[in-house]
């Protein structure tokens, strides 16, 4: 990143001057919010509380992994299980923008409660450029409302501080490496989490299907990359489609769900090409999903669209 050292020093100074009292940071454990937390912690120390919300939509083992990172970074943190609240609010909702706005609003309500308890006047977020660009504004079309921008309610009892607003992911990763932030190489994961990888209604059952499929895609691709068969893509995951199709399992008719595999290369998330995954790796993913998840999934497809005209996530 151009001028990374200056950026770090300027941000710490700016934070010191603006945040005089206490602050909380919305911290998912992704590289953006982890870097923002590390920078602000350097400026205000334990006056910062990192809040991680388990919304019931996170990946397999994610909450534990994030907690371990918080500990290794020495953050003052709290983990709140709000999964019931999120599932209740998402009941019968299928429109992608409605999902994103509901999730954004639920997040803020949790942060408001925590801020009040902690006596914080500031909410810090790891918002980066694509988040506000794609969320739209007076002149820009809304491509998708990122939970940390388009999902923010108009009335909020805290001041917002977003030190990474003008950066892209590749730049944030450079900072993460300089600051020794554990999340530096984690793949991007959307704020609304698995809800936008579950097309149609977000139920605990559907989330469980896509969570397991995402785990298999990640695990097989990591194994293939470790074996030197391919480079790790920028982002790689599974999407649960709302339609059903016919199959045959052990001479019996099956009528089940479809998983789409998505893997892309990108530098900044603003343009992307689908990854040329070796066929034997795709084969391993497909077989493992259809064999181990036979109750729910009987078909696997691979998404071969670039951004534009598609986006990286499906919703």
């Amino acid at each position: 990143m151009l001028g990374a050292e200056d950026f770090i020093n300027d941000t710490i100074e700016d934070t010191k001057s603006k945040i005089t009292g206490k602050a909380i940071i919305a911290c998912s454990g992704g590289v953006d919010s982890m870097v923002a937390a590390a920078l602000v912690q350097k400026a205000i120390g334990d006056r910062l509380l990192a809040v991680y919300v388990d919304n019931g939509l996170m990946r397999k083992g994610e909450t534990e992994e994030v907690e371990a990172m918080f500990k290794s970074m020495g953050f003052n943190y709290v983990i709140e299980d709000a999964s019931e609240e999120f599932f209740t609010a998402l009941k019968s909702v299928t429109d992608p923008e409605a999902k994103r706005k509901i999730i954004g609003e639920k997040f803020i309500r949790v942060f408001e409660r925590r801020a009040k308890e902690y006596g914080a006047e500031f909410l810090i977020q790891g918002t980066i450029a694509p988040d506000w660009i794609e969320s739209g504004d007076g002149v820009r079309d809304t491509i998708k409302s990122h939970h940390n921008v388009g999902g923010l309610p108009k009335e909020m009892g805290m001041s917002l501080y977003e030190p990474l607003r003008d950066l892209y992911k590749d730049e944030v990763r450079d900072l993460a490496r300089m600051l020794n932030v554990a999340a530096s190489e984690r793949q991007p994961f959307p704020g609304p989490a698995l809800a936008v990888r579950c097309l149609g209604e977000v139920t605990p059952e559907n989330i469980e299907i896509v969570r397991e499929a995402c785990y298999i895609v990640e695990d097989e691709i990591k194994k293939a990359a470790d074996a030197g068969k391919m480079d790790l893509p920028w982002q790689y995951f599974a999407v649960l489609l709302p339609s059903k199709s016919v199959g045959v399992q052990g001479d019996r008719r099956a009528y089940g769900r479809t998983i789409a595999i998505r893997a892309v290369s990108s530098i900044d998330g603003m343009t992307a090409t689908y990854s040329r995954i070796p066929l034997d790796v795709l084969d391993a993913i497909s077989q493992r999903i259809t064999n181990t998840m036979k109750q729910s999934v009987n078909r696997v497809v691979y998404d071969i669209t670039n951004k534009p005209p598609a986006t990286i996530e499906w919703e």
Binding site: I133, V139, R140, I143, M270
Partner: peptide
Amino acid sequence: NGSQWTHR
């Protein structure tokens, strides 16, 4: 003019 890539 409102492009996705103005900031790029």
